[in-house]
Amino acid sequence: MLMLPAAIIDGIMYAAWLFLVAVGLTLIYGVMKILNLAHGAFYTLGAYVAATFVGFWLAGDYNPYYSYLLLLLAGVIGGLVLGVLVERGILRRFYKEDQVVLLLVTYAIFLILEDVVKMIWGVEPYVISQPYGLLGSFNIGLLYYPNYNFVILGAAILSGVGLALFLKLTRPGKLLRVVIHDREISMALGINVQRYFLVTFVAGSILAALGGALTAPTISVAPEIGVEVIVLAFAVIVIGGLGSLPGAALGALIVGLVRSFAVHYFPEVELFSIYAVMAVVLIVRPMGLFAAAEPRKI
């Protein structure tokens, strides 16, 4: 009797984490049409910066509740610095190239950053579990869940709602939607497309690093964590439709629930379940559930 509510709750919590780590990826693709494989490296860097900040803070015997502020600060600083360096230093030189070239460039950046992480922090795992257990837990019947899950759930909701309101209600957001729909017309209208590319890429990088920073207290932070994340984030945005914010939310919910039910009822097919769902969706909707119509140029 407990398995059904446990599967649903676990699925929702996992979906929130998936959306948090995938929303930056879908934002960058939606605006820049770049499938950023370096997204996993930004996630890894955010986790390591968070582990460093929080580790030093807790070692100094300061108020542990400020560690949550440090997690947010680590995500913002890591994503901001790395996003500016990568976009200004590398990506802007390849905007006129084919999407396949940009894909290979971001993959090369991912490989380089993975080695940079190992050079700076080594290969031994970092553990900062205190923020995870500090908030206590809640129970539903005989089921107990850490309250820290609500931190990730809240961050996912705030990032999704915040992006949606920004795009629909603010003037910069509306101009960004113009850039999304037609880059050439945007340039003809005098919109600084290069500036919007920079802001978009940095925002996506911060979201990726923030996902890593908020996840750091729940895992052992190691160099390989970005590989799994980029695969899962890719599955989420492919299911939802590349570049679609509602699609990323729905894709995360589908993947989260499917994985959770597989873990609880059919654990032997857990790894296969996510890719099976992605295959089924792509058979029915090859461009994803919320794929935007692609304009034809004559």
Rank of each mutant, 00 (worst) to 15 (best):
Q130D: 06
Q130S: 10
Q130T: 04
Q130C: 02
Q130G: 06
P131Y: 00
Y132F: 04
G133I: 02
G133W: 01
G133M: 01
L134T: 03
L134G: 00
L135V: 00
L135H: 04
L135S: 00
L135C: 06
L135A: 03
G136S: 07
S137D: 06
S137G: 07
F138G: 00
F138K: 03
N139M: 05
N139F: 06
N139H: 14
N139L: 03
I140H: 04
I140W: 05
I140Y: 03
I140C: 04
I140Q: 07
I140F: 08
G141D: 09
L142E: 15
L142H: 14
L142D: 15
L142C: 13
L142P: 09
L143N: 02
L143F: 07
L143K: 01
Y144L: 06
Y144H: 10
Y144R: 05
Y144F: 12
Y144C: 02
Y145L: 06
Y145T: 03
Y145N: 04
P146E: 02
P146H: 06
N147V: 02
N147C: 04
N147G: 04
N147P: 00
Y148E: 01
Y148V: 05
N149I: 01
N149D: 07
F150C: 01
F150G: 04
V151A: 01
V151E: 04
V151W: 00
V151M: 05
V151K: 00
I152D: 03
I152C: 00
I152P: 02
I152V: 10
L153G: 08
L153S: 05
G154Q: 10
G154N: 02
A155H: 08
A155R: 01
A155Q: 07
A156I: 11
I157L: 07
I157N: 03
I157V: 11
L158Q: 03
L158G: 10
L158D: 09
S159V: 12
S159I: 07
G160I: 12
G160D: 06
G160E: 09
G160R: 11
V161T: 01
V161R: 05
G162P: 01
G162N: 08
G162Y: 02
G162E: 09
L163R: 06
L163F: 15
A164I: 09
L165R: 08
K168P: 05
K168R: 13
K168Q: 12
L169G: 07
L169I: 11
L169Q: 11
T170N: 11
T170Y: 07
T170C: 15
R171D: 14
R171W: 11
R171Y: 13
P172H: 13
P172W: 13
P172D: 14
G173F: 02
G173D: 12
L175R: 14
L176E: 04
L176V: 13
L176H: 09
L176I: 14
R177W: 15
R177T: 10
R177D: 07
V178A: 14
V179F: 13
V179I: 15
V179N: 05
I180E: 10
I180G: 09
I180S: 13
I180R: 13
H181W: 15
H181Y: 13
H181G: 12
D182C: 13
D182A: 07
D182F: 07
D182G: 08
D182Y: 08
